[in-house]
């Protein structure tokens, strides 16, 4: 009798735990999924708007603002510098980050050219245990096949931010990392020449 009762209690507890777990499991992805998708959609819309309406210096400023608000540039910049980040003094790090953001903004504003009717269709969001969400998307072009883009979004304490973009399997951060590393190695292992080069590019 008591055995049966305790078994019932156990079952009840198990059911309760299962329900709680299910509720938790259901609500968690919902929370995590809503944000990254919205962030990518909002960013894509803003960028298309910028390409449609601005040019030159104005466009560069607008893109820089997006890089600073939608992306986590300090995270990306740190990842791109790799092992060299540790040995770089704080003041130089800040100068590097500023130069990197400015040169990326410059590169992007030239890259986009004129708006050619591209649209971004966002696919599934994959939340991962370490807090990173991977957002799949396709960039549809007016001429030619769609381009596969994946966005890495993580919560960095100031809300969800983009920390990497992969285009056809090629990660922006990883490519920059190889690029920067090789440049630093070719210049006596110092970060300074890289910063100067980036500053030069930003001002071009």
């Amino acid at each position: 009798m008591s055995l049966r009762a305790s078994r019932r209690v156990v079952l009840f507890l198990a059911a309760g735990a299962a329900t709680a777990f299910a509720a938790g499991a259901l609500s968690m992805p919902a929370l995590a999924a809503g944000d990254p998708k919205e962030l990518i959609q909002k960013t894509a819309d803003e960028v298309i708007q910028i390409i449609k309406t601005t040019k030159g210096v104005e466009r560069e400023a607008a893109i820089e603002k997006i890089l600073l608000t939608a992306f986590d540039m300090s995270y990306m910049g740190r990842a791109a510098l790799g092992t060299h980040w540790e040995g770089t003094p704080e003041a130089e790090r800040q100068r590097y980050l500023k130069a990197a953001v400015a040169s990326e903004a410059h590169a992007y504003s030239e890259r986009f050219g004129q708006y050619g009717g591209q649209t971004l269709s966002i696919g599934k969001v994959t939340p991962r245990p370490n807090g990173v969400s991977v957002v799949d998307s396709k960039l549809n072009q007016a001429d030619g096949p769609p381009i596969t883009m994946q966005w890495e979004v993580r919560d960095t304490g100031q809300g969800a931010r983009i920390t990497d973009v992969k285009i056809e399997g090629v990660s922006m951060v990883m490519t920059r990392r190889s690029d920067f590393n090789s440049y630093i190695q070719g210049h006596g292992g110092k970060v300074e020449p890289l910063i100067e080069e980036l500053e030069k590019r930003a001002g071009k």
Partner: peptide, 23 residues
């Protein structure tokens, strides 16, 4: 684009090629 926006084109292309094949 890669050539214009990299500081070491050789290294950038090496990385991009390897990543794309791996993908």
């Amino acid at each position: 684009d890669l050539e214009k926006n990299s500081v070491d084109y050789y290294a950038a292309l090496r990385s991009a090629y390897t990543q794309q094949r791996a993908d």
